[in-house]
Nucleic acid binder design. Sequence first.
DNA 1: TCTCCGATTAGAC
DNA 2: CTAACGGTCTAATCGGAGA
Length: 423
Amino acid sequence: MANSERQLALVDCNNFYVSCERVFRPDLARTPMVVLSNNDGCVVSRSNEAKALGIGMGQPWFECQDLAHQHGILALSSNYALYADMSNRVMQILGTYSPEVEVYSIDECFVDLTGQAQLKATSYAMRERVFKWTGLPVCVGIGATKTLAKLANHVAKKHPRSQGVFNLNDLTAAQQQRLFERIEVSEVWGVGRKLTQRLAAHGIHTVYDLQTAHTATLRAEFGVVMERTQRELQGVACIELQDAHADKQQIICSRSFGQPVVSLAVLKDALSVFTANAAQKLRAQNSQAAWVQVFLRTNRFRRDQAQYNPSMSVPLVQATNDSLVLNRWVDHVAGLLWKDGYSYKKAGVVLSDISPTRVQQMDWLEPQKTADVQLMKTIDTLNQRFGRGCLKISTGGLHTQWQMKQERKSQSYTTDWHGVPCV
DNA sequence: TCTCCGATTAGAC
DNA sequence: CTAACGGTCTAATCGGAGA
């Protein structure tokens, strides 16, 4: 097809968390293995061997016990410090291939290769360099739009013959049609479980069906998002690359508890740690929040237990990023929400109505306090140097019952000297 | 009836 | 022995309250 087409690559690491673990444990290269979510709850990354054995993405780990014992599947707790560090290395390498890149997630990056002289050679070289320098396998999908690049990446991953690189722009219209007729619509970026069902009700089952569906009807039934997706599948870019990473509009810190929480003191302890984390993220992007929400959750999977999932928001008179101020509100709200007699499984703090710290809402009644700004800076600096949680606001982290289970964590090979053999 | 805005939903990973 | 099921974020859309 036309060489005027945009050549947008999506580079995606294969089985990212598992692959990161294997870099430092080459002996596990053929072991069926998975990485678990927080609390060792669900499977969030699977080796090819684990996939082949039928372990599902997002499956609760306890459901896999039989299979795991039968086949000796290894499960590791997630080690985010390690994955973040490996991710940075990959992104840095990819950044050398184009000035136009968007780090889309921890293991994915869009790279605009339009106009590259040796496109094919470059794509393979990119892949080989990442592998050589980090030990991580990646696949490269290329298309004229982000949605097509994602789809191309799926093809590259699925078909070994592609050798890890697939360019949709190399296909004729007829070849593309035949390919799209064979890919389920659920593989399309933005089409999840619910939409797959609703699309099926309209006779749309394959990528080709969606690509060629009647646009006005699609728009009327499914809204703008689906129309954009269709346009993107047709090669019309509707979703632009985002250069700088925008400030977050909302910051959440929530966690499921290792043990159910049944006392207000323990809940407040957990919430104060969540608040400190959330506030630190806020300060890291030089923002302040004017809206604080607290929520509690009982265990929704326990049909036998009474359910209570309250949440409450408070608007602040003055936006702040001060952990102590925020924590006073969180603490207060927690007291209002709390009811004895329930077994709480999860809680969280949400900061929103976020603005840059420069913009200060004037308040006649309560003059702005600046004394604590220095204190917060000191806390952030110390925590950064000595590890998060080394310094915390007075009430947080004294109880341990609520803390999450992580019984299978690997060492932080790249970021932490502790546990690294000295010889 | 319209508009605004908080709550809910759906999706990604 | 039983029970065990993640965390953060965005954008669109829904729907109730008040104008």
